[in-house]
Amino acid sequence: MMIKMTINGDVVEVDVKPNETLLDVLRNKLYITGPKEGCGNGECGACTVIYNGKPINSCLVLAPEADGAEILTVEGLTKNGKLHPIQEAFIEENAFQCGFCTPGFIMSTKALLDRKKNPTREDIVEALAGNLCRCTGYQTIIRAVEKAAEKLGVKE
């Protein structure tokens, strides 16, 4: 069945099947490969995208459901080649190593900072607990989120 979505500002029409997830469609049909499949069970957060304004695991959304949805992936954060302040903060704080979980963390961070301008450590932990990272030990990720909040606050 054909569905229509707005992905990173572009209207996209794509033929999907019920047994495909939103993640399958993004990656295998639209080649939007920023979101990753780390578990397929909603346990790791590597597939996190912002779906109708909220961060969700795209591996748990059946593709036909996404008809009419508005989706933001990590690919939609950079504007004209310029990094988003969250991305800058992740670089400055060394908040990634292998990079596989990074798009998911960045999208969870984006959603957090959209709803809370000055998140506490507790807020950060709550927002990112669904994103697994095996490399960094998370310490620099917490710092990157705090720094991104500062950067976004300063801008406004």
Partner: peptide, 12 residues
């Protein structure tokens, strides 16, 4: 309910 799954899960 705050302890169910991840933030992403609770959005669904």
């Amino acid at each position: 309910i705050k302890k169910v799954g991840a933030y992403q899960t609770r959005n669904r």
